[in-house]
Amino acid sequence: MVTRLDPKLFDATSEITWCAGCGDFAILKALKLALADLSIEPHQALVVSGIGCGSKLPDYMTINGFMTIHGRPLPVATAAKLANPDLHVVVVNGDGDSYGIGGNHFVQSCRRNPNITQIVENNQIYGLTKGQYSPTSDKGFVTTTSPDGAIELAFNPMSVALAAGATFIARAFAGEPKHLAQLIGEGIQHRGYALIDVLQPCVTFNRINTYDWYRKRIYHLEEEAYDPTDREAAWQKAHEWEERIPLGVLYRTDELPTYEDQVPTLADGSPVSRIIELSRNPRPQQYESLKEGFL
């Protein structure tokens, strides 16, 4: 039986600089709760982020944290997971960082299937830089950089993830932190890449997609006769927006191996454990052998 930890174990003393009412507060709270519920201690997990309001999150937790350059948390997280597969690796970044600047890493992670969890704080705007339209801004969205309305179609992370081969695709709403925590927990437990796209109001710069806007549109797949292993049904759900927005696990499959499962050198143990062993009992030729395994 798993002993549930106290979520306060993850509290930090850093001053939180998010705007009052920001949806990021709920994401932070839900992540702490999910880790505590799974009895994952701070030293057993790593949170990797990029650049943006939400990417400040690792600083607001007592946990291993790595804030990367803009758009690059996924490759850093994948490398950390390869170095130490025993670590629970969670990526937290915004829609711009994930789907815009880091868009290629997002697609490659979907098809590689590393055993990591990505939580995307999708507020459909660049908040830290004061309100420019982002990849997920709806067409016609007025911002400082789209004064006549965004002319591009919005990036659809659900359908892109499905097409690229992601093995766990879920969507949550920051206004429902308990449901969000449950989905984060499922994502962490999933063996493979898990995407949790969190619809998260930016209360300062996005005056369209507010808590009320989402509240009127969201519904829960768990409350319908929906089978998340049905890829075609997931494709349909992935395209629902505007009138009705589905929350929950859109798609999952446990039938594919993880990226780490297929890296031969990991069969001899994790690089971190082997380096620790070598530091206790130095054998230069073993360092070379370890390096060669990744070349």
Partner: peptide, 25 residues
């Protein structure tokens, strides 16, 4: 109600109604 709904979320509903930058910087 969501048992994790807290003061931050409560404030979010109100802050959304305040005059903000919108299309202006």
């Amino acid at each position: 109600p969501d048992p994790l709904f807290d003061s931050h979320l409560f404030l979010g509903w109100v802050v959304s109604t305040l005059d903000a930058t919108g299309a202006r910087d």
